[in-house]
Amino acid sequence: MVGWAIAVHGGAGVDPNLPTDRQEQAKLLLTRCLNLGISALRSSASAIDVVELVVRELETDPIFNSGRGSALTENGTVEMEASIMDGSGRKCGAVSGLTSVKNPVSLARLVMDKSPHSYLAFSGAENFAKQMGVERMENDYFITEDNVGMLKQAKEANSILFDYRIPTSGYESCGVGVESPITMNGLPISVYAPETVGCVVVDSQGRCAAATSTGGLMNKKVGRIGDSPLIGAGTYACDVCGVSCTGEGEAIIRGTVAREVAAVMEYKGLGLQAAVDFVIKERLDDGKAGVIAVSEKGEVAYGFNCVGMFRGCATEDGFMEVGIWE
């Protein structure tokens, strides 16, 4: 028997001038989600059930960019995506292009458990949601007034913007100020502050699981798919660990970041924190991202190469931390 461990994130890349009340709101939500997961783990829930439970809670609260409160596409619509993976047998499910599903992570779980496939997208995923009878909402449930305003700013700037809490001038985010614009796939973007959500868990049986959910990028092109639903990029779980990523999706995809954490543990023999540190340093090129991870030994780890990451973690021996900054 190992001790259980859990970690949760609400995105990497935080405005250093984020108002204190916003910071506290985020930390309260992370704490609530951690406590939800801890309670389930103490009741002997499995790792896969706990990651779904926690990410559902994150999707239901509009503070972060997933489910309700998702970023808007160039057309002012939502295209949500999520994935989930059970390290026991490496089973997985993923969805993209959702417009009506209240909890994308639960549809991803149903793809894993109730379909012959690993990944469904757009109209196929929506049709599957209807067949499964999952809860669906009208479009205005997902769209917040703040995000409508942010999309307007993004269109005026002819750019991809990420979050209403980040000012469009005088900022420094992910360590890059306005004089040195951040690029994505070589193209400049105005602001970098993604807020994908995710959870990783190892239960008392040593089973690892991971789940990630997002609304993507503000003003993204319709049909863009990020790292969150891509198994091995934004989400991965196996016998040795569970990993969820957040940040610049295109860089995470290129580096197959989540799988890479597992790979350096398996093939280089690195411990969990050393594996996370190695991947953050060596596999992101110029990209900015954060990672949370657990191991089958009951360890928890995280790392990021930008100004901050909304995160929380806890272990069975009583350790608990919720933070944003280094």
Rank of each mutant, 00 (worst) to 15 (best):
N185I: 11
A211D: 09
V202K: 05
F64C: 00
Q23F: 02
E126Y: 08
V197F: 05
G271T: 12
A5F: 05
G206D: 12
M265E: 04
M309G: 07
I225C: 10
D146L: 14
A301M: 00
K220I: 02
A125V: 13
E299A: 11
A47W: 03
A237K: 05
I182N: 04
N17Q: 14
M218N: 12
E250V: 02
F304N: 00
D15C: 08
G175H: 01
N17E: 13
S46N: 10
I48E: 02
S46M: 08
A26W: 01
T315W: 02
V105H: 00
E316Y: 04
N158P: 01
L53C: 04
D146T: 12
L29Q: 01
V55K: 01
A94T: 06
V2Y: 03
L284D: 01
D140C: 13
I160T: 03
G303M: 12
K155I: 07
P104M: 10
E59W: 00
R254F: 07
E195N: 12
C306A: 09
I38M: 12
M132F: 09
G312P: 01
T168D: 13
R56V: 07
C241R: 01
A274E: 15
V50E: 05
R224C: 04
G226Q: 10
G170W: 09
C245M: 12
R207D: 08
R90P: 00
K91R: 15
R254L: 13
G249E: 05
D163R: 03
A233I: 05
G271L: 12
A94K: 01
Y164V: 09
Q153E: 15
E266G: 06
V257N: 00
A40V: 00
T315I: 03
I63D: 00
D21I: 13
V14S: 04
G298M: 04
M80W: 05
G298W: 02
K155E: 04
T168W: 12
E260R: 13
T144D: 08
E81K: 03
D86R: 05
I225Q: 08
G249D: 07
S100Q: 10
F278M: 02
D61Q: 11
K152D: 09
N305C: 09
G216Y: 03
N147L: 10
V78E: 05
A47V: 02
V2T: 15
I38A: 10
S173Y: 02
D146V: 06
K152A: 08
G308C: 13
V197W: 07
N305D: 07
L107D: 04
